[in-house]
């Protein structure tokens, strides 16, 4: 076998040296043909696989992968991402949305309060690749029994630890509460909740479809009724969640957390009380296009439930629909006026 020793142009192959080399070439060609035939048509060729994975909106983007910011980047390419979500439903995750990206998200409940459309939202701006600034509504149960979205401004950090299977990514989120007024029996009560979250995210190479989230919410809650003493309390509130990737675009998400609960019956209580309430959500996120995520979920203990009512009081559950839109403002600015380019 001398196929590597001889370099013959095809046109000089003659009868005297044909049989062995041509036979070898034929054999090799047959092997290649068999391998090509054995590969399923839908199976991506090995060199193309990483490209396909990177372009897939449902895949978790690789660490450090960002939207290209060049003057020639097309709008379609910009909005193809990759984009990362920094929360489950209410719980922050150990991710940030990334630099030069802005996200606006909101959700509404048709049924949380009878006859009223309630809503909550988040506006977040990526700051470097490890932080984001946000204005959001955080979860607490108000004195009227509702899952009251209490406004807060916050910063979320991701600790720059290399990601490995079985080793959690760690994030810290601080949300500075802004007072929210509630009216009860003609008396106004300002409720404020300031939170510090310590959260971790765990993935395993052997279970690529599963992501676990867990952490603690340290909550500083304050109730200030008009004409009465201010009540405040510090609460340690565990929080946990999971994501199941059902297909490249959609995942099922569950979230269970304790939340501050304000309780006050002015007729029998001289001052409000601050306790703990359970909030649970089960739903899904659908990345309809890379830059838009639709969310839907059903929630437990968010209506006008009284503490004596339990799981079986499904008439107090609610349904929420939401959406998140990612805007690669850095890439847009680069394309428009040539600033913030890579």
């Amino acid at each position: 076998m001398q196929i590597t020793a001889v370099r013959w142009p095809l046109h000089v192959v003659g009868p005297n040296n044909c049989h062995m080399q041509c036979g070898s070439l034929t054999l090799i060609a047959l092997v290649i043909a068999a391998r090509a035939a054995a590969a399923a048509p839908g199976e991506p060729a090995p060199p193309a696989a990483p490209v396909a994975a990177a372009a897939d909106p449902g895949e978790a983007p690789a660490e450090g992968e960002t939207v290209p910011r060049t003057p020639t980047t097309t709008l379609g390419r910009m909005f193809r991402g990759p984009f990362r979500s920094a929360r489950l439903f209410a719980m922050p995750t150990a991710d940030v949305i990334g630099a030069y990206v802005l996200t606006v998200s909101g959700e509404g409940s048709l049924l949380q309060q009878p006859g009223v459309l309630t809503s909550a939202g988040v506006l977040a701006v990526g700051f470097g690749d490890i932080a984001q600034l946000e204005y959001r509504h955080t979860e607490a149960i108000g004195i009227t029994g509702l899952d009251a979205p209490v406004p807060a401004v916050g910063v979320q950090l991701k600790l720059p630890i290399p990601e490995r299977s079985g080793i959690p990514a760690i994030g810290v989120a601080f949300r500075l509460g802004v007072p929210r007024g509630e009216l009860l029996d003609g008396r106004n009560v300002d409720e404020t909740v300031t939170d510090l979250y310590l959260v971790g995210r765990l993935r395993f190479t052997s279970l690529p479809w599963l992501t676990l989230h867990g952490g603690t919410r340290i909550s500083f809650a304050k109730a200030a009724p008009a004409g009465a003493d201010v009540v405040s309390r510090t609460l340690w509130l565990p929080t946990a969640g999971y994501e199941l990737a059902m297909n490249p675009q959609a995942s099922i998400i569950g979230e269970l957390a304790l939340a501050p609960q304000f309780q006050w019956m002015p007729a029998i209580q001289p001052a409000p009380a601050i306790g703990r309430g359970v909030l649970g959500r089960l739903g899904m996120k659908w990345r309809i296009v890379p830059s838009v995520i639709l969310e839907g979920s059903l929630g437990y203990q968010v209506d006008d439930a009284t503490p004596s009512e339990g799981f079986e009081a499904v008439v107090t559950w609610d349904i929420r629909l939401g959406a998140a839109v990612f805007v690669p403002w850095g890439a847009l600015a680069c394309r428009a006026v040539g600033v913030f380019c890579n």
Binding site: V13, L25, T26, I32, A33, A37, A40, P41
Partner: peptide, 30 residues
């Protein structure tokens, strides 16, 4: 022989192309 080699090569490449164009066993891909 020269023509035979060309035919062999063309046959191999043609076979590969035809084989690759066939659907995978077990049904069409989604």
């Amino acid at each position: 022989m020269k023509q035979a080699s060309g035919m062999i090569l063309a046959t191999v490449l043609g076979t590969a192309a035809v084989a690759r164009a066939q659907p995978a066993p077990g049904g069409a891909p989604s």
